[in-house]
């Protein structure tokens, strides 16, 4: 269990995390989402005591991280896959970390086997690819068989095989009762892994919801393009349909299916140039939620439809 209480972190003039209060519970995979620069990594660094909070505090299993007698036995964290000495072998990298928690070399060999690095255990890490470095980082996080797993963008650089393995691993850990907190800026990745979502934008909490609820909240819509949009609008109003008219010739229907709209248009002799049913996806809901919270937005005025097309 991770309890984040009113956490704020300021770097100079920039407020990276702004009064964040979230509890990450055991028994489920909690996805930590947000655009780049939203404060995900900063939050994770504060959890494991790397960065000092400007205000607030974080408790892991009821204690500050710095007060844990053997942190690796309680928290397995992977924040930066390249945070290892290039001249040290994978085996020695893990052996040194294991020593901090009184963990023996048998467990070191075990985790190397587990992540598929047993064959290159005696190679210096400078020879490793990004994916291999990522696996070594995961091996380090597993050393102490911790109840809390904390991973920052773990699938970066992993091959499909590795991504599949990570998903299975995180789900298994959560099923055993572990607390699993995984960050990503990709909604699609989290949709497949997480049971619960914590969404951050510009350092503030945007959502703390079950993934299923987030999916349910994304409603389908119908795009209608017509030279007689004005006439169609009158018809729709009469029928009590909820819709937007973002452009003179474009209507976006929010609470009716494409078939109903087609029949209405036919009945009232309105010409349609386009009739498209768009299924609201989790990605759309995420973009909608974070649209106004993008730290480094390329097109500040872009609406979510445009973002979708680019993505």
């Amino acid at each position: 269990m991770i309890e984040i209480n009113h956490l704020s972190k300021r770097y100079g003039a920039r407020l990276a995390v702004d009064d964040l209060t979230v509890t990450v519970r055991p028994g489920r995979v909690t996805g930590f989402l947000g655009p780049n620069g939203a404060g995900k990594s900063t939050t994770m660094r504060a959890i494991i005591g790397l960065d000092r909070p400007t205000a607030g505090e974080v408790l892991v299993n009821g204690r500050r991280y710095v007060d844990l007698p053997a942190p690796l036995r309680e928290v397995g964290a992977l924040l930066d896959a390249k945070a290892m000495h290039p001249g040290r072998t994978a085996y020695h990298h893990l052996l040194a970390l294991a020593a901090t928690a009184g963990i023996g070399r048998a467990r070191v060999l075990e985790v190397l086997e587990l992540v598929g690095l047993a064959d290159v255990a005696r190679h210096r890490t400078r020879t490793f690819s990004l994916g291999m470095g990522q696996r070594l980082g995961i091996a380090a996080a597993l050393l102490g068989d911790p109840g809390v797993i904390l991973l920052d963008e773990p699938v970066n650089g992993l091959d499909p095989d590795g991504i599949h393995w990570i998903r299975g691993f995180l789900r298994a850990r959560a099923a055993e009762g572990g607390t699993v907190f995984v960050s990503s800026h990709l909604m699609s990745e989290m949709a497949m892994t997480a049971d619960h979502l914590v969404i951050l934008g510009r350092g503030r909490l945007l959502a703390d919801v079950p993934t299923a609820e987030m999916v349910a909240a994304t409603s389908p819509s119908v795009r209608v393009r017509s030279p007689q949009a004005a006439e169609l609008e009158v018809v729709l109003r009469a029928e009590g349909v909820r819709f937007d008219r973002p452009q003179p010739e474009l209507l976006v229907i929010l609470d009716r299916g494409a078939d109903e709209i087609a029949e209405l248009a036919f009945a009232h002799q309105v010409v349609l140039h386009e009739l498209t049913a768009t299924h609201g996806s989790l990605e759309d809901a995420y973009l909608e939620l974070t649209r106004n919270e993008l730290e480094y937005s390329t097109t500040p005025t872009a609406n979510p439809t445009d973002l979708r097309r680019v993505a």
Binding site: R73, A99, G102, L114, D161, W165, F169, A172
Partner: peptide, 30 residues
């Protein structure tokens, strides 16, 4: 290749909580 995810049962007990002196000393040695 990667082996299957570990689903081996984890030890629930995180070690007996010892007095401050006995829990500090191994920390330094380690």
């Amino acid at each position: 290749t990667i082996s299957a995810p570990s689903v081996a049962p984890r030890s629930v007990v995180s070690g007996p909580s010892t007095g401050s002196t006995s829990s500090r000393t191994p920390g330094f040695a380690r």
